[in-house]
Computed example of a mutant assay.
Amino acid sequence: MSESFTLKQVAEHKEVDQGLYIVIDSDVYKLDTFVDEHPGGAKILKRMGGKDASKQFWKYHNESVLKKYAPKLKIGSVKEEAKL
């Protein structure tokens, strides 16, 4: 079962030792165990930690990449936050 996260909760996981979460199209991915495997290097993942990386992801990847890695790395989705 996947969890729901706020963007603030995702932002709290911006470092590898904090779990290194990123958001792609409202889905949350935990990349701390994938950083060293990333073909493009760890640097870009670390730079995007705790943020919405959708724009950067789609610039360099296609849908097949998500299909391949989502089962292993996706941990939930971003929930709508109440607006005051």
Rank of each mutant, 00 (worst) to 15 (best):
K8D: 11
Y29E: 02
Q9S: 00
F5L: 08
M1D: 11
Y29S: 03
F57R: 08
D27S: 12
H13A: 07
A53T: 03
Y60G: 09
H13T: 01
P71W: 06
M1K: 09
G49N: 04
V78Y: 05
H38R: 11
K51A: 09
F57I: 07
K59Y: 13
D27R: 12
K67A: 11
S77L: 08
S4Y: 14
S2C: 09
W58A: 08
Y21A: 02
K72M: 13
P71N: 06
L7H: 08
S64M: 07
Q56L: 13
Y29N: 01
G76R: 08
T33P: 00
K72D: 15
D27A: 11
A70C: 09
M1F: 13
M1C: 10
E12V: 00
E12K: 05
P71K: 02
L45Y: 10
K72Q: 14
G41C: 08
S64R: 06
H38N: 15
D25E: 15
L31Y: 05
K14A: 11
L66R: 11
V23D: 02
S64Q: 07
E63C: 03
H38P: 03
Q9Y: 00
K79Y: 05
Y21W: 13
V65E: 05
G40C: 12
I24F: 01
Y60S: 11
K83H: 12
I22C: 08
L45R: 06
K72H: 14
E81G: 10
D32Y: 09
Y60E: 13
A11T: 04
S26F: 05
V65A: 14
K74Q: 12
T33H: 09
V65R: 01
E37C: 11
E37S: 13
S54G: 07
G40E: 13
L7S: 07
R47C: 00
H13F: 01
P71C: 06
F57N: 04
D17H: 11
E81L: 13
Q56K: 15
T6F: 02
D52Y: 04
Q18E: 14
S54A: 14
D32A: 09
K46Q: 13
Q9A: 06
K8A: 10
K43T: 13
V16A: 12
V16K: 12
L20A: 11
K8R: 15
A82L: 13
V10L: 05
T33Y: 10
K43P: 00
D36C: 04
G49M: 02
A42R: 15
V28L: 01
Y21P: 02
D25T: 14
I22E: 00
